[in-house]
């Protein structure tokens, strides 16, 4: 009988996904994000691609995979906006990398950790977007309402928890 031996926590909790899941879940998140604000304009406050980026990053626990997943999702997201392609790409690259790096260190299956990760990275995403637009692209007129961004973080966290639970079913342990 074949036995598996895990030498680290990372190896113990490292998950992979079926290629169809890896492709369709981010695509579904981007399409839903584009569709939902049309009938319900207030749902534009959500960032489903960010939630999916975080989920794949903390589940795979690979900073490179997290960075690349984040970059891909962010670039596609940018292509649908009027912003230069790369604004969301850069922000989500950093977030994917950082989330995967943190996922190696802490127990990301815990509810409190998930709440903190979503809340924190949503605010980090807003900060990165602000810095990229203001400093890198040089748009002095770019403003963010920080109260609005805090509200966005709270709402994203509330939506992310059930999505994480749902997507947990798609995990496969290597």
């Amino acid at each position: 009988m074949a036995t598996r031996s895990y030498t680290s926590r990372r190896e113990l909790e490292e998950h992979s996904f079926h290629p169809a899941v890896s492709l369709l879940v981010p695509l579904a998140a981007i399409i839903l994000q584009a569709l939902l604000p049309k009938p319900l304009p207030r749902l534009a406050i959500l960032d489903l691609p960010l939630i999916v980026t975080l989920f794949f990053a903390v589940s795979r626990r690979s900073p490179i995979a997290g960075a690349l997943t984040g970059a891909a999702i962010g670039l596609v997201q940018d292509a649908l906006t009027n912003q230069p392609i790369g604004v969301n790409g850069m922000a989500k690259t950093v977030i994917g990398y950082a989330a995967a790096s943190i996922g190696v260190q802490v127990d990301v299956e815990n509810l409190s950790t998930r709440i903190l990760i979503n809340l924190g990275f949503s605010l980090v995403n807003s900060t990165l977007l602000f810095l990229i637009n203001r400093r890198l692209i040089g748009q002095p007129g770019f403003h963010l309402s920080w109260f609005h961004e805090l509200l966005r973080a709270v709402i994203n966290t509330a939506v992310a928890i059930p999505i994480f639970v749902l997507l947990d079913n798609a995990k496969r342990t290597d």
């Binding site: 900073p63 490179i64 960075a67 690349l68 970059a71 670039l75 009027n82 912003q83 230069p84 392609i85 790369g86 604004v87 790409g89 850069m90 690259t93 950093v94 990398y97 890198l136 692209i137 040089g138 748009q139």
Partner: peptide
């Protein structure tokens, strides 16, 4: 890898963004 991905996107942004910025 992180630096390479970010650098590639920064170059991409630099190509796209013209002065003055007109989105």
């Amino acid at each position: 890898v992180l630096v390479a991905v970010l650098l590639a996107q920064t170059i991409g942004l630099a190509i796209q963004v013209r002065r003055p910025v007109e989105s």
